[in-house]
Computed example of a mutant assay.
Amino acid sequence: MEKLILLLDRTAVLFIGIAVGAVIGLAFLGGGENGEAVANAPAPVIEAQETASADTGPGECAVQFNRSLTRSLAEGEPVQIGVFGDSFGDGLWAALYRGFRGEEEFVVHQFARQSTGFTRYRSLNIFDDIAERLDEQPVDIAVLSFGANDTQGIYTGNSGAAFMSEEWQEIVGGRVDAIVQLLRDRGAIVYWVGLPKMRRAAFDAQIQQQNGFYAARMRQLGVPFIDTVALSVDESGEYAAYLPNPETGARTLVRANDGIHMTGMGYGFLTRGLEQRIRGYVDSARAEAMRERERRNAGNAGETDGQADG
């Protein structure tokens, strides 16, 4: 019976990943919403790089340890992980949910919104939406992934900022900075997950421009940028619908037919390293929480001894 329940659960998560991926494809095909599309402007492609290596220690998120997280761990509370983003974020959530499934010390929340983006604030102001969600459910760790719907310009008043133009980067960069600061002010550490390689060359060029832009922004903010391009290509660095499973080596379907989004297993390929990084950071934070509790207990014992001596 337990094996049957586990199989059904895994199947459900797989279909979630495929379903949200299909929505991404529709969003891409539909272009901008509410007439917000602006002609694209040429911009140099910036090479996307991680802001920290995979074996970076607990200081990878700009602070050695998040005080809110260590406090939660010291009190035996589960780690609250929030996944924010567009439809691609839905797929990442499904993969992380599956990765942490059955572990009481981790709770993974789905906070992604389909068909949203930094160029679509007329449809949904992401900053306000995230603030409202944090009011309802605080998180210790925030995973962000945006850009799937942002290969378009932004209208500001009566003028338009073309995709990747200087004004576009200033507007989007300001919105990104505000959200990262919001999450940090609410006690969360932040990870940014980039987008994978796309099959259509012209669209992939736009996505890689965004990856480069966000990678550079995350370096400035001290936020780890998870480069997923290397996880979504074959040995020659080309787009691949099938890749070897890192655990079994079996040839596995990781992309859907539209050449844009991932399958359920594909999203798992992208989050495998991130899951390990989160576990490593939490383990280090837990050890620090134990040390703090021991220091606090020792201090309390010293005060008691002092009072007795007096």
Rank of each mutant, 00 (worst) to 15 (best):
S68C: 15
S68K: 14
L69M: 14
T70K: 07
T70N: 04
T70P: 07
T70E: 10
T70C: 09
T70S: 12
R71F: 00
S72E: 12
S72T: 14
S72P: 09
L73M: 06
A74T: 02
A74W: 02
A74P: 02
E75A: 15
E75Q: 13
E75V: 00
G76E: 00
G76S: 11
G76N: 11
E77V: 08
E77P: 00
P78N: 10
P78R: 10
Q80I: 06
Q80H: 14
I81E: 08
I81F: 02
I81M: 02
I81T: 05
I81A: 07
I81C: 08
I81N: 09
G82S: 03
G82E: 04
V83K: 06
V83W: 06
V83R: 07
F84H: 12
G85H: 10
G85K: 09
G85W: 13
D86H: 09
D86T: 06
D86Q: 07
S87H: 11
F88L: 00
G89H: 07
D90Y: 15
D90R: 13
G91N: 03
G91I: 09
L92H: 14
L92K: 04
A94F: 04
A94L: 01
A94Q: 04
A94I: 01
A95G: 11
A95T: 01
L96H: 02
Y97T: 12
Y97P: 00
Y97N: 09
Y97F: 15
Y97E: 06
